[in-house]
Design a protein around this nucleic acid. Structure first.
Lengths: 109, 109
DNA sequence: AACCTATACATAGGCTATCTATAGTTTGGA
DNA sequence: TCCAAACTATAGATAGCCTATGTATAGGTT
């Protein structure tokens, strides 16, 4: 099953970090936001999302705090740290660089 | 070691197939072409390239033939098959779709 | 009360794709 | 003769994501 990947490999951290630039959000909300903003093209599975958030925590790119969600449930809200913001900048420009390079190959080959 | 990846994961087949649309080429030539067309941003390592070519052969997306290269050496020239051409089309549109979706997230988040 | 659905978090195990490291042959030039 | 460049190839390691599974709670329905 799973005909097509739901994510472009290597872009998960980028998408998560970017989603947090607006405001702190819990994991479930991050997944919904990515799905919605991408018009349902990108889907982040739980098994990808939560481990990714743990790694971001360990690297100090986000911090977390338990609060109550909009629907009155316990939820862990993630916030971008300064390091996370910096890292996001790097990942964004690296992404653009790669896409541009691939674009050149696809046009000129 | 390895500060940054030399390739965007998942795009290797796409780049190889596209490189073969002009004319048949040997592995080494494919690697050089990708490097040159991308202005040295993308580098395909031998350990990635040759296994990838074997997989493409097995899947019938390319065919191979031993010939003499421009520099008078034995070299294996790869040619796109009809299936390979079709596959390339699919991969290209899928790539565009993904990039567009990520772009929407990066703009609106 | 029993049940269902959506919300919410988390981990173990496995797979895919790529990289690292290594090894070998041939050609032409210094 | 020696060395660099051209050319192919494989084994093993690793990164990153997915599949499958488990837990739990809120709110609505029956």
């Amino acid at each position: 099953m799973a005909g097509k990947p739901e994510l472009m490999p290597g872009t998960l951290d980028l998408l998560i970090l970017k989603t947090l630039t607006r405001a702190p959000q819990h994991g479930y909300g991050i997944a919904l936001a990515i799905k919605r903003l991408s018009d349902d093209v990108l889907t982040v599975e739980e098994g990808s999302l939560y481990p990714a958030l743990q790694r971001l925590l360990l690297r100090g790119l986000v911090k977390a705090e338990w609060k109550m969600s909009e629907t009155n449930r316990r939820a862990r809200f993630y916030t971008l740290t300064a390091a996370g913001r910096k890292r996001l900048g790097i990942e964004m420009s690296e992404f653009e660089r790669m896409v541009a390079a691939i674009g050149r190959v696809l046009q000129n080959a």
